[in-house]
């Protein structure tokens, strides 16, 4: 039964992955990619990694909706209502993806995989987490803070109106001078 579910989900994931390059509407393409991620979330749940599987579903739905908004905003035709091709630089893309696929497939064959355990561990998510990050927890925590700091810094650098625009050069205004009235602490 598990094997059947695995193959059904796997084929659906690959099929919706292919649709990403065959469809011509940005909205449909985004949701095809979302479908692919959802099926992969299903595969993770099938492996007993419930937490990771459900979190993949949760994060990917949010991410793909945000991505749809940005991709459509950045497209060259207004609102993305005209059909468009998702394929660019055909030869280069084919070469790169072929090499990456071959390398990953070779990795599966070359790496000595451990023999499957007789029984499933009580908490596979915990086991996977420890084997992935066990010795590297400090690195990962530092990386997390570095990423967050980068995001905050990038936002601060790119914002058009900072606190000096809102509160004056000496931050002397009690009520900020904003183009849109209302909100927290405004009139």
């Amino acid at each position: 039964m598990d094997v059947v579910v695995f193959w059904v989900l796997a084929l659906l994931a690959v099929a919706s992955g292919i649709l990403v390059f065959r469809l011509s509407s940005m909205a449909r393409v985004t949701y095809a990619l979302l479908g692919s991620f959802l099926f992969i979330g299903g595969e993770l749940i099938l492996l007993g990694l419930n937490y990771l599987g459900v979190v993949v579903i949760l994060m990917m739905v949010m991410e793909m909706v945000i991505m749809a908004v940005f991709m459509i905003a950045y497209m060259m035709n207004p609102a993305g209502l005209m059909p468009m091709s998702m394929v660019h630089n055909r030869r280069g893309a084919l070469a790169i993806s072929g090499v990456v696929f071959a390398a990953l497939a070779a990795g599966i064959a070359a790496v000595p995989l451990p023999a499957p355990a007789a029984t499933r561990p009580p908490d596979p998510t915990l086991q996977l987490g420890e084997s992935l990050m066990g010795g590297q927890m400090l690195t990962m925590m530092t990386l997390g803070f570095a990423l967050l700091a980068t995001m905050v810094a990038a936002t601060v650098l790119s914002t058009g109106r900072g606190r000096y625009d809102r509160f004056g050069d000496d931050l002397e205004r009690r009520i900020p001078n904003d183009p849109v009235p209302g909100g927290v602490g405004r009139r």
Binding site: A27, Y31, N50, Y51, V54, V55, L58, V61, V65, A68
Partner: peptide, 25 residues
Amino acid sequence: DLDVGVVWFNAMEVVTWAAVWLVGW
């Protein structure tokens, strides 16, 4: 009786993002 029931509820509630945006599109 899912061991990550709270996350599941959250994930299903987030599906409305995708659904409502589609109804708009």
